[in-house]
């Protein structure tokens, strides 16, 4: 990870178009976020908090009402740069069925590079690499509609990887999946980030996914209300609950016990951390 900025939201506001006379309220209000190269950022928020709008703003699918979004210094409002921006930042959406274009897995993954006018031999190479990176290479000749939800979503991720973007933004990629599918997709995301150095922005409302990120941003009614490491962010129980979210059960339990005088450290996020801390506390290791 370095300090170079990849996506920068500067005083960004956005409003969806209304069907009638009265304009809708702002979906995004004067937001400032700086996503650095190589980071794994989770953006949390309840439905309608504006978090999905950020995904579309990040690669010029929609443009801010006011303020600017910069991708490696390129302003998304500059129409000439649209292509360059989308080659830097790719987006995967919630419903895997609605983002797969072709009838064969590998042909779908090839769709992006084909649009970019890349040489056939190079596309082949990219498609194979992309499919291998999400563990879907054996399925390259399958029909997408016969795959499981988790597999479809990994094909969608491969589709973005084949464009060799530096950053992949995933808009609730696991919301429609079962636990197994969620785990598969989560593994792929971590691999892209940790092993291949891609910047990953995961938009979600699952806390246990956010725990695995380097940085967590919490959105509430169009504003950023928290921004920090998972440990920092999850210590603010009240702000999290006000944002319509819930802490992981392990954190909630730890906080509750602390309030009742049990000696536990701050920032417990997972069951394993809880168990360790609890045993340590009872063994008298931390008694004052």
């Amino acid at each position: 990870m370095n300090n170079e900025s990849l996506i920068r939201f500067c005083d960004v506001s956005y409003r969806y178009e209304s069907d009638n006379e009265t304009p809708l309220p702002l979906a995004i209000k004067n937001i400032n976020i700086d996503i650095k190269k190589g980071e794994f950022v989770a953006i949390l928020g309840h439905n309608g908090s504006g978090k999905s709008t950020l995904a579309k703003l990040s690669n010029a699918i929609i443009l801010p009402e006011s303020g600017n979004v910069f991708v490696e210094g390129m302003d998304t409002a500059d129409e000439k740069l649209e292509y360059d921006i989308r080659q830097k930042v790719g987006v995967v959406f919630q419903n895997p069925d609605n983002q797969i274009v072709a009838t064969i897995v590998e042909e779908d993954v090839a769709f992006g590079p084909e649009n970019l006018g890349i040489e056939p031999a190079e596309i082949r190479q990219r498609v194979d690499d992309a499919l291998k990176s999400v563990g879907m290479y054996e399925y390259r000749l399958h029909e997408p509609h016969k795959l499981s939800g988790g597999q479809k979503q990994r094909v969608a991720i491969a589709g973005v990887m084949a464009m060799q973007t530096d950053c992949i933004v995933l808009d609730e990629p696991t919301a429609m999946l079962d636990p197994k599918g969620r785990e598969e997709v989560m593994k792929s995301m971590l691999r892209l980030n940790k092993e291949m150095g891609k910047t990953v922005v995961l938009i979600t409302h699952y806390m246990d996914e956010a725990v695995k990120a380097d940085r967590v941003i919490v959105m509430n009614s169009g504003n950023v209300v928290l921004d920090g490491t998972p440990r920092e962010v999850f210590s603010h129980e009240e702000i999290i609950e006000n944002a319509g979210l819930e802490l992981p059960d392990s954190s909630k339990l730890a906080l509750k016990l602390k309030k009742n005088g049990v000696n536990l450290p701050d920032g417990i996020l997972t069951p394993d951390e809880f168990i360790e801390a609890f045993k340590f506390s009872l063994s008298g290791g931390a008694s004052h």
């Binding site: 080659q87 042909e107 090839a110 992006g112 084909e114 649009n115 056939p120 498609v127």
Partner: peptide, 14 residues
């Protein structure tokens, strides 16, 4: 998002 706009000069993998 995957750079399709209806009038690009597309190449084909196959």
């Amino acid at each position: 998002c995957r750079c399709y706009n209806g009038n690009n000069k597309r190449t084909r993998m196959k």
